[in-house]
Amino acid sequence: MTMPDTQHPLTILIAADTYPPHVNGAAQFGYRLAKGMTARGHDVHVLACRPGKGKSFSEFRDEATVHRLRSHSVPTHEYFRITFPWEIKKEISLLFDRIQPDVVHIQSHYMIGEHVLYEAVKRGIRIVATNHFMPENLNPFLPFPQWFKDIVGRISWKDMGKVMGQADVVTTPTPLAAKAMHQHAFLRKVLPLSNGIDASAYELKAGETLERHPSPTVLFVGRLAEEKHVDVLIDAVAKTPKDLDIHLEVVGGGEVRPALEAQVARLGLQDRVKFLGMASDAELREAYLAADVFCMPGTAELQSLVTLEAMSASTPVLLADAMALPHLVHDGENGHLFTPNDSDDLAAKMARLFTLPSDELAAMGKTSREMVENHSIERTLRTFEDLYRGASYDDLVV
């Protein structure tokens, strides 16, 4: 096994099956990881799908040199792309010849990540593997009965163990995800390591002011997909007392937006629910800072970066009691958990927050901000850099 030098800059190859312009947590993590490692002086290369038709190509971007592989659309997803092994294996081998990576960091056990790992194993190059995936993430895109989806899920877990079990170190964003990987993929040592965020980016700057919404406003940010259950959030807003005049802003795009818009019209909430679509970084920051409460009703969140971003903006949160979200709530201190898919419970918790005195709601937001300190992007980058240079699971687990 070749080991990177402990002093000199590294050549890092990040294999990402989803990467910007894709909009999801794994894609954003890959981008921030590349940007952070470049800022730390390393030579960073990203291998990802081409976002549209055409031949493979390379582009020089601020965050890294990004190599785009030929890819193909899938009929059940608006932007996700797949690659075929017989089209990419040779190109991956040639890329290894050209850039000579010291370490590779795969972001999934599928497609690109899988074949980058196999090439690194063959060449004796250090491998770090991070899992951002749960089988439930696939369900909305599989047009099959649940019993068949369950079989696909079991196969996915088995494949994860087979592929990631060959890495030198395996990480995932939360302890809950690490436990699931141990139980279902039979991976013995999985390091929980937050994706990390730059919390200061979502604070008001010195002298900065921001106009608040005239009505109490709940914010949702994310891909508009089935597993996010934004329909439950819309139903909950409709069930809150009318005198509270609670409004909802929805940031993001996705395949279920038309159904959500139809739901809003059916409930007569057009004046209280606003779909903002895709937002720039500046627009998203403003949405976080202006919101009174953030809600994530999703039931397949491995960490939920958008929730951490909202907490960085000193915002109380309402989160489904599912997957990793309970780790982000001290119930009654920075917000509340609600029963997944239960709009009545969510409506009651929402009304409870908006009947609190303003200073108590602000105190909840302050607690959110304090909790985010454990998810510093600098800590995450520093730990991954240690892993790239040869640190092991046992070195980092106290």
Rank of each mutant, 00 (worst) to 15 (best):
P4T: 13
Q7S: 15
D17T: 10
D17P: 00
H22V: 06
A27Y: 00
G30T: 07
G30V: 04
G36N: 05
M37K: 02
M37T: 05
H42L: 07
V44M: 01
L47Q: 07
C49T: 05
C49N: 12
G52A: 11
K53H: 04
S56Q: 04
S58V: 08
D62T: 12
V66L: 07
V66N: 01
V74T: 09
P75H: 06
T76W: 09
H77R: 04
F80Y: 02
P85K: 15
K90E: 07
I92V: 14
S93D: 15
F96M: 13
I99N: 01
P101T: 09
V104D: 09
H105V: 06
I106F: 03
S108N: 15
S108P: 09
H109W: 08
H109G: 02
I112R: 01
I112M: 14
H115W: 14
A120E: 06
V121Y: 05
I125M: 07
R126Y: 04
V128M: 10
A129S: 12
F133G: 00
P135F: 04
L138D: 10
P143D: 06
Q146G: 06
F148L: 15
V152T: 12
G153N: 09
S156C: 13
D159E: 14
D159N: 15
M160W: 02
G165R: 02
Q166M: 10
V169Y: 01
T171A: 07
P173H: 05
P175I: 01
P175Y: 04
A178R: 01
Q183H: 08
H184L: 10
H184T: 06
P192R: 03
G196W: 00
G196T: 05
L204Q: 12
L210Q: 13
L210Y: 08
P214V: 09
S215L: 10
P216K: 15
R223V: 05
K228R: 12
K228V: 10
H229E: 13
D231N: 15
I234E: 00
I234A: 01
D235E: 14
A236V: 01
A236M: 02
V237K: 00
K239R: 15
K239Y: 03
T240F: 03
P241E: 13
K242R: 10
H247N: 15
L248P: 02
L248R: 05
L248W: 11
E249Y: 06
G253Y: 06
P258L: 12
A262H: 10
G268H: 00
Q270P: 07
K274E: 08
K274H: 15
L276P: 00
D281Q: 15
E283N: 13
E283T: 09
E286L: 11
F294K: 02
C295Y: 00
G298C: 08
L302I: 14
A310E: 02
M311F: 07
A313L: 06
S314K: 02
T315C: 12
V317G: 01
A322H: 03
E333P: 02
N341D: 11
D345F: 03
K349P: 06
R352V: 03
L356C: 09
S358L: 11
A363L: 11
M364P: 00
R369H: 11
E370H: 14
E373D: 12
H375A: 12
R379D: 13
L381N: 13
R382D: 13
T383W: 06
T383G: 09
Y393C: 11
D394V: 04
D395M: 07
L396T: 07
V397P: 06
